[in-house]
Design a protein around this nucleic acid. Sequence first.
DNA 1: TTGTCTGCAAATTCTTTGCAACGTT
DNA 2: AACGTTGCAAAGAATTTGCAGACAA
Lengths: 157, 157
Amino acid sequence: MSTHHSHADHHTHDPAAGTRWSDHAERVLRDAGLRTGGGRAAVIGVLAGEGCMLAAQDIVDRLRTQGGPGANLATVYRTLDTLRALDLVHRLDPGDGTARFERAQPDGEHHHHVLYADGAIEPFHDDELEQAIHTLAGRLGIELVGHDVVLHAVPKG
Amino acid sequence: MSTHHSHADHHTHDPAAGTRWSDHAERVLRDAGLRTGGGRAAVIGVLAGEGCMLAAQDIVDRLRTQGGPGANLATVYRTLDTLRALDLVHRLDPGDGTARFERAQPDGEHHHHVLYADGAIEPFHDDELEQAIHTLAGRLGIELVGHDVVLHAVPKG
DNA sequence: TTGTCTGCAAATTCTTTGCAACGTT
DNA sequence: AACGTTGCAAAGAATTTGCAGACAA
């Protein structure tokens, strides 16, 4: 919780992005002939409210804490599967054996993650890194459809 | 299998790197007061021979195929744990629910991966990407101890 | 001998699936 | 009414752990 906002953390809390995504997601689901409402809407609500590194169990927990309509763990997994098939969420495996999920913005806006040794996670976005990766893709002669970057770090001593 | 060797794939098959690593690994183990020989040596042998994205079960399978001394799956997991604690192997989670392991060179030499939609995996190394990541770490004000990059791609159409 | 390592089987943890009941259109 | 969706419980898959016997130093 630093008092200054660096370029690096402007993705951490962006309510507008959540709302935008949630609207988008519900539209895509309806267009696909699927139904919103019930557990699926609840999961979308959680993902919209907090877009970073949520485990399936985390989603169940937030719903329970919020007191509103909940969702069974199986439903959460099924919903995440559905959303992933529609490119509405990304799956990430930070290496602890538990998959994490976060919303995927329709405009391709995204972030990467710093994993600290103490377990803390910090999202970041960096245009120069994105640039470097796209240049690299050209150099490798591949057609890029996505990319993940994880930085492992220790608190600066 | 292209007929030309690009900068990108020179890490794929490097017998010298395997030998170097295997010697290094056994020395580190001995220095740590641990014993080599038995299943542990077998696992090291497989990792030395093929340094890219091996699942625990893959290691058991290669050993069985090779006909020599084998290793139980539990032993493989325990050995990988031990080697990881000594920074002799890296763990990667490509996102299919199964962890993969590869040797970590003592000199920090490493590679990243391209995951194709059809399941193929291609290792690559790129100095400019490494440069960009180190610059980025400075910009973020973090002390980097490692990093993973995964590119998702489709065969160039 | 002495303490470590290994195999086997049981236990855990995360994720998926079958099925009957429920809710939406 | 028709069909997608959900919860619950059971099934699966990957990884970990307890323990007794095998092995290295």
